[in-house]
Nucleic acid binder design. Structure first.
Length: 428
RNA sequence: UCCGGCGUAGCUCAGCUGGUAGAGCAGACGGCUGUUAACCGUCGGGUCGCAGGUUCGAGUCCUGCCGCCGGAGCCA
């Protein structure tokens, strides 16, 4: 059996292809069966007078998504999509498919999500998920090339995280356990062992958000580096995002073109990315007519206002302490703020990275935990990292689905994860 | 939780100031030797989201509920 992507190399040979019927067009005494095998599409031509009656009947009775093994000669044919076609000799139906629900036409979102297990087979979904897989591989390659050690962090955790109100809880042999919102606190523990580490896996947020940028389960890559400050942190973010875009352009160009992505906007993504401080951002927003004042968090509409002037991602750094997480390091030049950054994707895709230098002073960290009313006992081991050889360190989290939504130009993050978990959706 | 929008055939939708249900696609059958979401013909297919109310009469108007979508808050 051969794969459709290799058909050109088998021109003139008789081969077998296994796949699923994408489309059937019958014209009396000739029929066209388009088969998808997961690597591509091939048009099979069935001519009545060349086939046994049984084969002709089977071919013209095929329905959408029937699985088949087709055998025939590979021919170069300019009229065929892809330039090659199969002159059908033999056909074996492997599994029938009566009344396949998804048609080659527009469908509503709810219907498609109800049929996500089948929707995966369609071309746009295949293209988007292929880009996701490439970006995931690129993430591992990027960190591996730079000497980072991958440190897998737990998904089941005690009550530790950023915001207790948005944790999913479950029973753990009589104790409360929570699904991890972040692996960050754990990768911090990995730094003294390996200096530069990262984790990459699913994270869970029980936020009741119903927007195109939110999932309750999403994938995040979180590097953490010892002896790196906020400035070095932003430089690595810039390099990573640039690399991910380059890899997608290099290895997923057909997919991006199929999705109608404006590639010139991606090709323009080169460092350095523009940077403004939170305070400058507030001033700029005021000039653009926003009501947001110093001390407020920057919302979605404001992010779009800030990023509209450039096709490059934009860093906004050093936010007020009170709108950011407890573990971020106080800015020595302005103690009202912390050494952190958000990276806003262009074209309204919003925040794709949140990063910071971490508070390495035990007393300051303890004070922040108490200020926020967090359960001090749960952070005992985390505080140990400041008791035993504390060190300056920084890291960030990049949201995979938001990043891939931006790179592919898809509107909603739910299409860039195979089985999205949304506010009201746990199936399929 | 709040604000806005939408629920009619398997799917996508039309259905006017209330008068008793329609199209395309999908399915079944027939026709056609080069189609590209082929085309042409025939047929089957409905608790108009649910429950009340107004009315001689409700898919259409009113109330409540349910579901979905987008946004806010929160975040990646």
């Amino acid at each position: 059996m051969v794969e459709v992507r290799d058909l050109a190399r088998h021109t003139g040979e008789e081969v077998t292809v296994g796949g699923w019927v994408d489309q059937l067009r019958v014209h009396g005494k000739v029929a066209f069966v388009v088969v998808r095998d997961g690597t591509g599409y091939v048009q099979c031509v069935a001519v009545k007078q060349e086939l046994e009656e049984e084969t002709w009947e089977a071919a013209t009775g095929l329905t959408q998504e029937t699985s088949v093994m087709v055998r025939g000669e590979v021919r170069a044919e300019p009229r065929a999509p892809g330039g090659y076609e199969l002159q059908l000799r033999r056909l074996q139906v492997v599994g029938t498919s009566p009344e396949y629900p998804i048609q080659p036409k527009e469908h509503g979102v709810e219907f498609l999500l109800d049929h996500r297990h089948l929707w995966l087979r369609s071309s746009q979904q295949r293209a988007g998920l292929r880009v996701r897989a490439e970006v995931e591989q690129a993430i591992h390659d990027f960190f591996y090339q730079r000497g980072f050690v991958r440190l897998d962090t737990p998904i089941l955790t005690g009550s530790i995280g950023e915001h207790a109100g948005t944790l999913f809880s479950t029973d753990y042999f009589g104790q409360n356990a929570y699904l991890a919102q972040t692996g960050q606190l754990y990768v911090e523990a990995g730094c003294p062992a390996f200096r530069k580490v990262y984790c990459f896996g699913p994270t869970f947020r029980a936020e009741k958000s119903k927007t195109r940028r939110h999932l309750t389960e999403f994938w995040m890559v979180e590097p953490e580096m010892a002896f790196v400050d906020s400035e070095g942190n932003m430089r690595l973010q810039e390099e990573l995002v640039t690399y991910l875009v380059e890899r997608a352009l290099e290895r997923c160009r057909p997919e991006l073109e199929y999705l109608g992505r404006d590639l010139s906007k991606l090709e323009a993504v080169k460092p350095p990315f523009p940077r403004i401080s939170y305070t400058e951002a507030i001033e700029l927003l005021a000039r653009k007519g926003s009501e947001t004042r110093w001390g407020d968090d920057i919302g979605g509409a404001d992010e779009t206002l800030l990023s509209e002037d450039s096709h490059l991602p934009l860093f906004v750094y050093n936010y007020p302490k009170k709108v950011k997480a407890f573990y971020m390091k106080e800015n020595p030049d302005d103690p009202r703020t912390v050494l952190c950054d958000d990276l806003l994707a262009p074209e309204g895709y919003g925040e794709i990275i949140g990063g910071s230098q971490r508070e390495d002073d035990l007393d300051k960290l303890l004070a922040r935990i108490r200020e926020e009313g967090l359960p001090e006992e749960a952070y005992g081991w985390y505080l140990d990292l400041r008791r035993y050889g504390t060190f300056p360190h920084s890291g960030f989290g990049l949201g995979l689905e938001r990043t891939v939504a931006w790179i592919t130009g898809r509107k909603h993050v739910r299409e860039l994860i195979p089985f999205p978990r949304l506010l009201n959706r746990l199936y399929p």
